[in-house]
């Protein structure tokens, strides 16, 4: 105990328990995509591109009453300490599914029957909490693509390290800590669209952790908004 949080409540990277890593979002970073975003969340570096709404290929995948959404979460081989094989791992397949579901909750899929939407997420460097940063950036990329949404989806993780409930685990805290609890949240609708947990929490600790995660997502939402405002209102375009 005590190796991830010191007596003063400082974490390995000098942060306080409820403190988020620096987050920077850029909008419209790829020319060819219909929408795109780049996020640096701590040392996570992630590009997200959105293509669509577009025709569905192969055609039999088309849904008569709504948009068909595909999502690929992928980590580059050089994004982690030991080279990751470029083939999608079981973890990446699961994350692609839960990220898609977290975003689909916000997208007005019923407005676009028989169309497809592709969301491509490439983790260039991973630093703990990459699924959250991916959702945060994907939501901005969707806005950049002009996809109608009920709300933005903002995401971050909370966790438990050395017995403390903390916001936004970094790589070391994620690997050596007791609990990782990623959350995605629609701040204006007060709705959770992604919730996963591994590790042990008492009920009371869970309630506190969920509350902290919601506050974290609200901060992320502010950063998403100002990134979009910077792109659309401040630049001379």
């Amino acid at each position: 105990m005590g190796k991830l949080v010191d007596e003063q409540g400082r974490r390995v990277d000098g942060r306080g328990l409820n403190e988020m890593r620096p987050v920077k979002i850029e909008v419209g970073v790829l020319k060819n995509a219909d929408g795109s975003a780049y996020i640096e969340h701590g040392k996570n570096k992630i590009i997200v591109a959105v293509y669509g709404p577009k025709e569905v290929h192969p055609r039999h995948l088309a849904l008569p009453d709504r948009m068909f959404i595909r999502c690929r979460y992928h980590m580059s081989p050089f994004s982690v300490q030991e080279r990751k094989s470029p083939q999608p791992s079981r973890r990446e397949i699961e994350l692609s599914k839960v990220i898609r579901e977290a975003l689909e909750a916000a997208i007005m899929i019923e407005e676009y029957p028989r169309t497809a939407l592709d969301i491509f997420i490439e983790v260039l460097e991973s630093d703990g909490g990459s699924r959250g940063a991916s959702i945060t950036a994907a939501s901005v990329a969707l806005a950049n693509a002009g996809i109608p949404m009920r709300d933005m989806v903002a995401s971050c993780a909370v966790g438990k390290i050395d017995g403390h409930i903390v916001l936004d685990l970094n790589d070391q805290e994620d690997k050596e800590g007791e609990v990782d609890l990623p959350v995605a949240y629609m701040p204006n609708l007060n709705r959770i669209t992604l919730l996963q947990m591994d590790g042990k929490l008492l009920h009371e600790e869970f309630d506190r952790a969920l509350d902290l995660a919601v506050h974290g997502c609200e901060q992320i939402y502010g950063i998403q908004r100002s990134a979009l405002q910077d792109y659309y209102f401040k630049q001379d375009r």
Partner: peptide, 11 residues
Amino acid sequence: LCAIQKGEPGS
């Protein structure tokens, strides 16, 4: 609690 998973679109 030792694991949680939300699934399906929706919130």
